[in-house]
Write a protein that binds this DNA or RNA. Structure first.
Length: 210
DNA sequence: ATCCCGAGGG
DNA sequence: CCCTCTGGAT
């Protein structure tokens, strides 16, 4: 894809979603971190169903510790990987309480040192909560980048590096959500809706997946 | 490479 | 039944 095509690509995704943002529900940075941790291999729709009642009680790491691990695990039962997620969220709350004054750290190093927080989750928090121009490559973005030819790569890190190089700077801050929304609703994994795709003429598949 | 692991869609 | 969903740890 040429630089001009990439410019077109994001201009059209922007036109389709003028004010993109995460579809995860949260009221503060700690809840954002928790919601992103819970979103692994789960639809954010289900994450929101789980967090909607839960976040009325859990507003701080101390609230998580007060709830206790067994009750937390029980509250997360509807999510896949729920035992692992409960353990990680609880252990993360402990560390935030003991070493970060109950706050979510704003550096990649400190974030990825938290149990259950890897590069992708750290990138989301750094971008959404702290406004940094990171590129969190999730299942949607990995697929869209490869399928369209925007940023082909065999690993998520390779795709992340390429995306940071090829995305026009003015689009970088919101590129994460534009690519996610495109992958979630149009460039779907199983049955992509090329008929509704605003960038079909720029795509490496040329709409041949329909 | 494998495990974790519920729910929805096809 | 199989595939997929804003992954991370071992």
């Amino acid at each position: 894809m040429t630089p001009d095509q990439r410019q077109q690509f994001f201009e059209r995704l922007q036109a389709a979603n003028p004010h993109p943002g995460t579809e995860l529900h949260y009221h503060n940075t700690f809840q954002l971190l928790m919601a992103v941790m819970l979103s692994a291999q789960s639809t954010d729709r289900r994450v929101n169903q789980v967090t909607q009642p839960l976040f009325e009680q859990l507003k701080t790491p101390a609230d998580v510790l007060a709830l206790g691990l067994p009750a937390l695990e029980s509250a997360l039962r509807q999510l896949g990987l729920y035992r692992t997620k409960a353990r990680h969220v609880y252990a993360t709350a402990q560390i935030l309480e003991q070493h970060h004054g109950g706050l979510v750290p704003a550096t990649r190093e400190a974030l990825q040192a938290l149990p259950g927080v890897g590069r992708k989750t750290a990138n989301v928090v750094l971008n959404v909560a702290f406004g940094q121009p990171t590129m969190a490559v999730d299942t949607h973005i990995f697929r869209v980048a490869n399928r369209t030819g925007l940023a082909p790569g065999k690993t998520v890190l390779a795709v992340e590096t390429t995306l940071l190089q090829v995305i026009p700077p003015s689009f970088l801050n919101h590129a994460h959500h534009w690519l996610i929304l495109h992958g979630r609703y149009i460039c779907r994994a199983r049955k992509p809706d090329c008929g509704l795709c605003p960038v079909m003429d720029l795509c490496a598949t040329g709409g041949s997946l329909v």
